[in-house]
Amino acid sequence: MKKKALTLILVLLFVAMILAACGGSSEENGSEEASGSTETTTLRLAENHPDDYPTTIGDKEFARLVEEKTDGRYVIEVYSGGQLGEESEVLEQAQLGTIDLARVNAIPLAQFSEDIGVLSMPYLFEDEEAKWEKLNGDVGQDLLATLDGSNLVGLAFYDSGERSFYNTEHPIEKPEDMAGLKIRVQNSELAIDIVEALGASATPMEYGEVYSALQTGVIDGAENNFPSYYTSNHYNVSPYFTVNGYQGNPEVLLASESLWNELSDEDKEAFREAALESVAVQREAWAELTEEARDAVVEAGSELIEVEDVSAWRDAVQPIYDKYGDQFGEWIDRLTE
């Protein structure tokens, strides 16, 4: 009798467990059906700047917007601080599809699309308003589309500020003041041509070597934006900063083509919208960082030479437009019209 009672109890417990499991499954499915959600896909976005840097802030806003616009079907994890590699490594991985998304500067993308090199032209835009109206508009999207065939898909441009010259010798107010100075530049033909058109001697050099080269007199100056001038401590050894914004290569938020091909048309539109909408947040963070850096170097003793009228500088670099006009002519017209 006891044995039968024990058997009955075990059967009842087994039935109860099955019913509980079915009930839980039904509740979960009902919840999914009510919310319209499906399986979540987690993506990786590579960022080589620190967690609180403006581009990282933009990345995170992009990730938030994608999750919102896809009802949680896509979640993007931002790996800041170069956790997934430096820009060159990240680009290779994105092309192979082992990284889903990345933020890189426009300069290295010129190896995949010569057209994007137009963004390195000096004094290209009349002002910041004109620049971002173009980059956030149809022209900017068309320029990003020239990456087709590289296994990369450009989504949006992020702000990287305006580059200006700074030096150890004297204030520079006009192009003639550049004469004879040895200025560090990136190792590119266009960068060299710009500095030499302004009358200085271009010295290609790795960025990490610039501080000691300024300190020892190997070079007389360099060029960059305020945050880089500050965080690199170049202001300690090169106190004259000419605010003339001669060049403004933007950053680029991009996707791996292998990821892109897996997205529905609706999700592609959601990713593009999220990218463009995140630009405002990224640019605001960049403006705040620029102001902080500017105030810091002034407080440290740097002399800022404000150039209100850059027409003389534009005239001085006309040979650059003569030389590269055939290569970039169409894009120059579209970006400046």
Rank of each mutant, 00 (worst) to 15 (best):
L152D: 02
E89S: 15
E32Q: 01
K4P: 00
I116V: 08
L181I: 02
I57V: 13
A21P: 05
V15K: 03
T56Q: 02
V139H: 06
E77P: 01
L147P: 06
T40Y: 09
Q215W: 11
G36H: 13
P54F: 12
L10K: 09
K60A: 06
I107M: 04
L143T: 05
D322E: 12
N105K: 11
E284I: 09
D148N: 07
A106P: 06
M121L: 15
F14H: 03
A312S: 15
K182L: 09
L109D: 00
A179E: 07
A255G: 10
Y230F: 06
M178W: 01
G24Y: 15
Q141D: 10
M17I: 14
E89Y: 09
V281N: 01
L91H: 03
V118T: 05
L253D: 00
N136M: 04
A197W: 05
A200Y: 00
E133V: 06
W132Y: 02
A156M: 05
E306K: 08
A179P: 01
A156Q: 05
S31W: 09
I192T: 14
V185L: 13
E284M: 02
P319Q: 12
I9H: 02
G97D: 00
D138S: 09
L259P: 01
R73G: 07
F157E: 01
N244A: 14
E39M: 11
A213L: 10
S164V: 06
G221H: 07
A300T: 00
L43T: 03
L144G: 03
D333P: 12
K60Y: 04
L19I: 13
I320R: 01
A191D: 09
L144V: 01
L263F: 05
E28R: 06
M205Q: 10
L335V: 01
R103S: 14
V11W: 02
A300L: 10
D309P: 11
L152I: 04
E269K: 03
E133H: 07
E277D: 13
I99F: 00
D295L: 14
E251S: 15
R64C: 06
C22I: 08
V185F: 00
A110E: 02
S160Q: 08
A270K: 10
